[in-house]
């Protein structure tokens, strides 16, 4: 949680897209930006990149105002996936309310996924977040490509973790909204448990999710 000001009725939350390099974190955000209505979200801010690789982070903010007047801002960030930017990943992870782990479905990248996930666990503990209590959603991206690990196998591997696992192709635009929705619901539930969003601020879960995920009409 970045900020909660009860007097100003202001709540700022953070959702972080984590994962190995080139797994499609920025593409996920671009896809959200394209598919969701402008109402309820801000512009996508891409900080400096080198050769199209994120070196700082990307940011896409979402807004929601509850009937009680509570203004909720959800800031969605990506981290740089390259191993060398570990310090930046750690900085972005600070005070996260939820994490979306974008994994690469390619068979050749399974080791990299595991390394990155271990890195996530380590960095979460270093910034003082307990992975068991943090809403975490796993997305296997690039499902459109040949040479990916079959879904059944991925589910068999990741099922025991108890984490929501979703298949997607950010490039083709499917699975991205579902992933985002699962993450937003997780974040809402976690924050609700801490602050009593529904009871004290009359924030409805469905309203909140619907407000953030307003699909652009074709």
């Amino acid at each position: 949680m970045i900020e909660f000001d009860e007097q100003q009725k202001r709540l700022v939350l953070k959702l972080v897209y984590y994962g190995p390099a080139l797994s499609g974190k920025t593409t996920n955000l671009l896809c959200l930006h394209d598919q969701l209505q402008q109402e309820g979200r801000g512009e996508l801010m891409l900080l400096d990149t080198t050769e199209d690789r994120t070196i700082y982070f990307d940011l896409l903010p979402f807004f929601y105002v509850a009937p009680s007047g509570l203004k909720i801002k959800l800031k969605v960030y990506t981290v740089p996936g390259q191993v060398r930017h570990d310090a930046t990943r750690k900085a972005v992870l600070q005070r996260a309310d939820g994490v979306v782990f974008i994994a690469d479905s390619l068979l050749s990248q399974q080791g990299v996924n595991a390394e990155s996930f271990a890195n996530l666990e380590q960095n979460l503990s270093m910034v003082g977040l307990a992975i068991e209590q943090l809403p975490l959603v796993v997305q296997f991206n690039k499902q459109d490509l040949p040479g990916v690990v079959p879904e059944a196998e991925l589910r068999e591997t990741w099922g025991p973790t108890g984490l929501p696992v979703l298949m997607a192709s950010a490039l083709q635009g499917w699975g991205v909204l579902e992933t985002f929705q699962a993450a937003v619901e997780g974040v809402f539930d976690a924050v609700d448990q801490k602050l009593g969003l529904q009871e004290r601020f009359q924030v409805s879960r469905d309203d909140f999710v619907a407000a953030l995920i307003k699909v652009e009409k074709p």
Binding site: M45, L47, D48, Y56, F57, L59, A87, T88, K90, A91, V92
Partner: peptide, 20 residues
């Protein structure tokens, strides 16, 4: 917007420098 971007990158950069 440009100032904000610069601030954000500077902040990340500073925290990395501090960490190293």
């Amino acid at each position: 917007t440009n100032n904000l971007k610069r601030m954000l990158t500077t902040e990340v950069h500073t925290s990395i420098v501090q960490e190293s």
